[in-house]
Nucleic acid binder design. Sequence first.
DNA 1: AGGATAGCCTGCGGGC
DNA 2: TGCCCGCAGGCTATCC
Length: 306
Amino acid sequence: MPELPEIEHLRRTLEPHLVGARVTGVDLRRRDMVRVAGSRQALRAVNNAHLLHGATVTSIVRHGKSLAFLADNGRVLATHMGMSGSLVVRQKDHVHDSDKHLHCIWTLLRSEPAPSLRRSVASSLQSFQLFYRDPRRFGGLWPLASLEELNERLWSRLGPDALSIDGETLRDRLARTTQPIKAALLNQSLVAGVGNIYADEALFAAGIHPLTKPTRIALDGYGALATAIRSIMLAAVNSGGSTISDYRDATGQAGSFAFQHAVYGRAELPCMRCGRPLRSIVVGQRTTVFCQLCQTRRTRTTYPRG
DNA sequence: AGGATAGCCTGCGGGC
DNA sequence: TGCCCGCAGGCTATCC
């Protein structure tokens, strides 16, 4: 479900609650959601230390769509939300935990109430819970012994983060492949963080046809594409992400960026630039919406917008 | 080796 | 109402 902007917004909303909090309890309901680093395979012999029991969270870091919790004992817990995953913070015993898709519940204790919860708390000690839910179970939890292991075994497989990508880097990464540009953008080993929504939105903003071969796009085309990726993703982060059906941030709030989508989910509706109906095709097994008039396959020296 | 395909899962909405 | 179909924000494993 979530792409980079949703994960970054999630990171920002989790941070004030989790950083400085100590894990006092772990209730793992589906052990097979804990996986071997770099694979979907279930990790055998999972223990609570893998899930940071007894440790204090020192920071939350993100690369592409992957989010990782760093603890004071050096351990790391990496997460991926897949298509339908969510992490929500609630005051203790505030949620019906009979939900069959709740896979792990952490209980945490912090000595200073988080700013957003301060009003409702009388004492200086506060217990709360973190709920990990994922109906489709395409996501998972990946325990790692250290930050070095996170980088070597997980994040080294990812390309540079899309939120700070530049045109030259984008060209160097994408022009290695013969796949259409849309498929290349979705390949996380080339650029990390772009998913189906933002790939279509960025290609539209840069005026590039999704079936264009990456080698046929000029450097200034990549400049326009990189600018589009960064500006659209930044705007989405600041709108709390795109909620299509069930994405929620750490506090359970939906994002509002879907109201600003120019092409995603708008097949057959008029193009916001030229008014012609938007077309829908399949590229790399993913639905792709674009404007046949505003997005071209020809190599050009300038692109509209960006 | 890179690229195309199937597969992993549940839930929802539409058509009949 | 109920069933079947297609579709969904992602990625891995397996073939060729």
